[in-house]
Design a protein around this nucleic acid. Structure first.
Lengths: 208, 208
DNA sequence: ACCTGAACACCGTTCAAGT
DNA sequence: ACCTGAACACCGTTCAAGT
């Protein structure tokens, strides 16, 4: 029984994650989590302040995982814009594969406590992604007419909007976009047409 | 007592909306709604199949309101791109003023039943907004390199992402974007720079 | 038709008590 | 320290019964 080697706290986080994936946020009751681990229904309170704290622990683990993925992409020898697309592809796959987890991290209002460790983990993820955007701005593949944080924010908001609409079953309404991945491709068509070559060649031609 | 003149069903919807605005989705319990109206705690079941159906009625009313707002904007004598911005401004104000309601309409997975009246109302809203985008494409203010539905989908996804992040308390993490309205402005900078004048003048200059 | 009270099976959370 | 059983105040939902 390899699970017995884990501490009870870690096992509770794992059980909560499994319930989240299989039945959505409503399925993550402290009683169900406790039963899955094999402890009494109020043992979770020995390890977490309340239900929100348990969910926050699940979210924090995934934020760290995402940060690692973005950092790994940065270490590759891909072109700057390819790094951004690579990271976003991984992000979209994560959001499509684990929609309930995705919403916990990026939408749930109940777990966000300002100044906590969760917020710090979320900011590290954002910073790791912003670094990729910065690289694509420096190489001229993405517009450098605005601060990196601003561009990163809008790109992230768009991808989040696509994933959240899909997770909420609202993609049906947009006949123009069947899946989030398609929307990301359209976004790049809009903000980096032909690797921003159009804007660059335009600037070259119109200069005296 | 003017409220007494309303049918019990309408009064339940109004009470649910008020509870949603003041305390979030969790505050909308059937018992609290019934108490606010002054009926027994299970009277709502005489008017709605279950809690989700009551929430769906709240959402449907707001979808109709949004559709009317978009249609009214279309009837003005504003420039095509100004109509789009005007509609989005109103949409952002709605999302910022009533975040819980906004999420009910565009994020909540519990009320979306395919083929129902709610979905039809949501599609009418989308169509009314798409008509404004179409006008801006026709006037050359927005890129016409993709179908109207596709562009509308991406623009809406971005605005939804901004509003949802703000409603979920995630805006703090993006130092580049303090409010959803700022993000919308950045979006237009990216997809309609100087009214798309840059791309057009570029095409003019680079043609032989 | 519309409403009611009682009841059922759940919740999160607390607490005194055990080892 | 860690876990337990009982209990409290809530839920959504159902149902037999009233007018």
């Amino acid at each position: 029984m390899p699970e017995q080697t884990l501490t009870t706290g870690k096992r509770l986080v794992e059980a909560a994650t499994a319930l989240l994936d299989s039945g959505g946020e409503a399925a993550v009751t402290l009683r169900a989590v406790a039963q899955a681990v094999g402890v009494s229904h109020n043992t979770p309170y020995r390890h977490f302040a309340d239900r929100a704290a348990l969910l926050a622990a699940v979210a924090e683990r995934d934020f760290t995982m995402l940060t690692d993925a973005f950092t790994a992409t940065e270490g590759t020898r891909l072109q700057p814009l390819a790094k951004v697309k690579d990271a976003l592809d991984a992000f979209v796959v994560y959001g499509e594969t684990y929609p309930a987890r995705y919403r916990l991290l990026f939408s749930d209002p109940g777990i966000a406590s300002p100044g906590g460790e969760l917020e710090a983990a979320a900011m590290r993820s954002f910073a790791a992604f912003a670094k990729l955007i910065e690289g694509a701005q420096a190489s001229g593949d993405l517009p450098a007419t605005m601060p990196t944080a601003t561009l990163t924010g809008v790109v992230f908001a768009t991808v989040h909007g696509l994933l959240d609409l899909q997770a909420g079953g609202r993609m049906r309404e947009e006949k123009g976009l069947s899946r989030a991945a398609a929307g990301v491709a359209v976004l790049f068509e809009l903000i980096a047409p032909r690797g921003d070559a159009a804007a660059q060649s335009c600037a070259t031609v119109s200069s005296p």
